[in-house]
Amino acid sequence: METALLLIDIQRGFDAPVWGERNNLDAEDNAGALLAHWRHNRAPVVHIRHVSIEPGSPLGADTGGTTFKAQVSPIEGEAVFDKSVNSAFIGTGLEAHLRGHGIDALVICGLTTPHCVSTTTRMAANLGFSVQLAHDACATFTSNANTDWDSALSPMTAQQIHTTAVSHLHGEFAQAVTVADLLRSQP
C-alpha cells in the first residue's frame, strides 16, 4: 500500500480570534513531525489549502489567511490543492492525483476536526481509500459548536467537539491514531 500524508488547511487564517477557544495547541507541531517523517522517507505528501469565497473570511486570499503555517509549508515537488468547500475532493484534482500515483491509503491531519478534516476523511473512505486519522495533529475551535438549534444544549468546549468528531470517524471511516504511533509504524 502506498500511503500519502494529507495535511488539511493548516493555515494562518486559523490564528484569527474569530474562531474562539481552541483545543490541541500542539497540532501544527505534531503535523510538522509527520511531515518531516514523510519527507525523510520520500513518501508522498499532499497539502490542502482552503481559499474562502466569503467576503472578509479569515481564510480569504486577500487577508493572508491562506498562507500555510511554518511547520507544514510545502516544498517544491509536493502537491498543493486549493478548495473552497469542506471536502478536499470536491472541485479539485485530489482523487485523480492520488490514483495516478498509485496511492490507496492516507494519513490525514489538519484543521478543523469536525469540518474539513471530517468531511475529507469520510469522503476518502467512501472513495475506497484506507484512512488513518492522526487525531493529535488535528484541532478545532469553540466556534464549531453550533448548539443554537436547541436552547436546552450548553455550548461544547473545543475538546468536546474534537473528541466527538474523532469518535464519529473512528472505526467506520478511519482508524484514529496518535502521531507517535504513526511515526513508529510508518516506514
Rank of each mutant, 00 (worst) to 15 (best):
M1G: 03
E2A: 02
T3S: 03
L5R: 00
L6V: 09
D9I: 01
I10A: 06
G13M: 12
P17G: 11
V18E: 14
E21G: 12
R22Y: 04
N23S: 08
N24S: 05
D26F: 12
L34E: 03
L34K: 03
L34R: 04
A36D: 14
A36I: 04
R42T: 11
A43S: 12
P44A: 02
V45S: 05
H47R: 13
I48P: 02
I48G: 08
R49K: 14
R49N: 02
H50M: 07
H50R: 04
H50V: 00
V51W: 08
S52F: 15
E54T: 08
P55H: 04
P55D: 12
G56M: 12
S57I: 10
P58F: 13
A61Q: 11
T66M: 06
K69I: 07
Q71I: 08
G77H: 13
K83D: 09
S84M: 13
V85G: 01
V85S: 14
A88G: 13
F89L: 06
G93F: 04
L94T: 04
L94A: 10
L94C: 06
H97F: 14
G102S: 00
D104W: 00
D104A: 03
D104F: 01
A105T: 00
A105F: 01
G110M: 08
G110E: 07
L111M: 11
T113N: 09
P114K: 08
H115W: 07
H115E: 10
C116F: 09
C116E: 11
C116M: 01
S118K: 13
T119V: 12
T120E: 10
T120N: 01
R122V: 02
R122W: 14
M123R: 13
N126L: 05
N126G: 00
L127I: 05
G128L: 09
F129Q: 00
Q132R: 08
H135L: 07
A137S: 05
C138W: 05
A139M: 14
T140M: 09
S143Q: 08
N144V: 07
W149K: 10
D150F: 11
L153V: 13
S154E: 15
S154V: 14
P155I: 12
M156E: 15
M156L: 15
A158C: 12
Q160I: 06
I161P: 01
A165I: 12
S167R: 04
S167A: 15
H168M: 15
H170E: 02
G171P: 10
G171I: 09
F173K: 02
Q175Y: 04
Q175P: 00
Q175S: 10
Q175V: 07
L182I: 12
L182S: 01
L183C: 02
L183V: 05
S185M: 01
Q186H: 08
